[in-house]
């Protein structure tokens, strides 16, 4: 800087805005063997992929909820604050309880953001299941759809082979029907999720529109 020029401006120290995502993963007995192994590798790929983006590393906050039983295996944290969990297949498919748990978890997280004056992006809930709910899921579906209408979150449902797609259709918001995973390509699915989070965490949109997401090569909509 030439002599006589003022110093450069100093920067306000603001917390990074956060981009919360809940991975809501089916680890019921039917997932045992190859499916759970592929799922675990997919989760790892998600962590690795987000880490490649400087901004997403600071902003994306991930929590992992498995079912059943419904358990928080990784609480919210940025990619460097957290570790990809290794899931083991066990028990039944309490999908309704799992969804309600995830919705409550998100609300609590938002409250803590607000309390610390941390700005945040619209949260995502990303559900993956290979079965049919073994509990009452109607209330969960109502809450998912209401919150989606109120623009509180974005809910994505993915069925793995064997999933009860008809029930998933009734849970997922009508404008975003559930996708059927092609084979066990969890890796591509999580890479897509990571790419989407990168777009979200660097985006700005009007209050009436949505971010255009990368094309989904790993799944298809069943009619």
């Amino acid at each position: 800087m030439p002599v006589g020029q003022p110093e450069f401006p100093e920067f306000a120290d603001n917390p990074e805005p956060r981009c919360p995502v809940v991975l809501l993963l089916d680890a019921s007995g039917s997932m045992s063997g190859e499916p759970i192994n592929e799922l675990n590798q997919g989760i790892n790929a998600f962590w690795q992929s987000v880490k490649q983006d400087a901004l997403a590393t600071l902003r994306v906050e991930v929590a992992v909820v498995k079912f059943g039983p419904v358990r928080l295996v990784q609480d919210f944290g940025t990619i460097v604050q957290t570790k990809p969990p290794k899931l083991e297949a066990e028990s039944d498919t309490p999908l309704g309880a799992a969804i309600e748990y995830a919705l409550d978890l998100l609300e609590t997280r938002k409250e803590s953001y607000k309390a610390s004056s941390i700005q945040y992006y619209r949260p995502w809930i990303f559900l993956v299941t290979d079965g049919a709910p073994t509990d009452d899921w109607q209330n969960a579906a109502t809450r998912v759809r209401q919150a989606e209408t109120d623009r509180k979150h974005l809910f994505f449902a993915v069925g793995v082979e064997g999933a009860d797609m008809d029930t998933l259709k009734q849970i997922a918001p009508s404008q975003r029907p559930p996708l059927m995973l092609k084979g066990l390509d969890f890796k591509s699915m999580f890479e897509w999720l990571s790419a989407s989070m990168k777009r979200v965490s660097a985006s700005r949109v009007g209050t009436e529109e949505q971010i255009s997401l990368p094309p989904v090569g790993w799944g298809e909509i069943q009619t």
Binding site: Q119, Y121, S203, V205, G206, T207
Partner: peptide
């Protein structure tokens, strides 16, 4: 900003 940090109003927005 809306509730979400990346949402804002544009000149072309209805409101």
């Amino acid at each position: 900003k809306g509730e979400f940090v990346n949402e804002t109003t544009f000149v072309t927005s209805e409101n």
